[in-house]
Design a protein around this nucleic acid. Structure first.
Lengths: 204, 204
DNA sequence: GTCTATAAATAGATAGAC
DNA sequence: GTCTATCTATTTATAGAC
């Protein structure tokens, strides 16, 4: 309380958050394969040693990125859902496939990293909680979309929706669409993902 | 013609093919991120310089792997399809989603590498041809599945099917399912992918 | 066509100064 | 909490011997 602007080493008081943000920028432009702690450090303008004061190793930095991605994704889902009339729960659910495609295209992080096996092994509680919360949110939307019926139906609808959203998002990222239909954009693919979810039928 | 068993350097006459096979083995066990020319060379038991007599660089080796993956995948699709009665073209198409999931799980290579942007830039004719042939095969099966109707319907069915197959395959690889339902295996996921394709409806 | 040897890049991670 | 410096490991790729 004495000093609201605490003295920082050289030019950062917020390195942890800045490294996470720089990591998103790297993931958005390149593969996870090309991501490195060193690049994130350079992007922020600190030495390559500095990140290790904030993250035990590369995987712990990635886990923090993954946890934030799960939180951001949940927030975007809530925001996009809120723009659809409450009396159309099926549509509220469907459009989140588009939300996912757009988010992954913009931030470069999605289910692949949020639920990745190596990161899961770290037993990071923040990541596990954020991932669970994201899936619970989507499951609730799936349930509302069906408006009753067996619980397994909601789970199956969620699975097919998730698979469609992730399939579109990863094929887009890998260049599958750009080589086949050069005019496809993030927006058109997101719309097609939402439409695919919209037309899903289960249990009938 | 003088010597049917041509003299080879030390112990290989078939290094190119062996490197491709070793690359598949690496991809099956680990990420593309962890793949390296050096590892493939060591797996085969040659020096790390030898691969460069057969492939200009890492990407050209991967392109050869991708081209072979497209060929193998097409062969498996044909084989699996042949086991389904000809009078059920819808089923013949649907089961290829399972074929894809099983192939990617076993070999570690699929659409992500066959159509990957960096490899596409190499303008490798073999890869381009194999990729096109694979998609043409699937498109023909999609057309048969619909048994007539607008050509756009077959394209949309193919897209949704491809997205489902790839979505299941990549989520399986990344560990999404094992963390959620530990009892899921390649076989159960492949069956769910086929079922998802089976229930796709377009243009109606 | 394979080898040995090596160059040049890059990354992960740690030690110790400030 | 950040820096400089450093160690170790790995990889990609090339040169030149055999």
């Amino acid at each position: 309380m004495a000093n609201p602007t605490p003295r920082r080493g050289y030019h950062h008081g917020n390195l942890r958050a800045e490294l996470i943000e720089a990591s998103f920028a790297l993931l958005a432009k390149h593969d996870l394969a090309e991501f490195s702690v060193a690049k994130a450090a350079r992007a922020v303008g600190v030495s390559t040693a500095s990140p290790y004061r904030h993250f035990a190793d590369r995987d712990h930095l990635l886990a923090a990125v993954a946890a934030q991605a799960a939180l951001e994704l949940a927030a975007r889902v809530r925001a996009d859902v809120a723009a659809v009339p409450e009396d159309d729960p099926r549509e509220r659910f469907a459009i989140t496939a588009g939300t996912y495609v757009r988010y992954v295209a913009e931030r470069g992080a999605g289910f692949s990293i949020i639920f990745s096996t190596p990161l899961a092994r770290l037993d990071d509680a923040e990541l596990a909680d954020a991932g669970r919360a994201l899936m619970r949110l989507l499951l609730d939307l799936a349930r509302d979309a069906l408006g009753g019926g067996p619980p397994e139906d909601a789970l199956l609808l969620l699975e097919r929706h998730t698979v469609a959203a992730h399939g579109y998002a990863t094929l887009l990222r890998d260049g599958f669409f750009s080589s086949r239909r050069p005019k496809d954009t993030v927006g058109t693919i997101a719309a097609r993902a939402a439409q695919a979810s919209r037309e899903l039928r289960v249990g009938g």
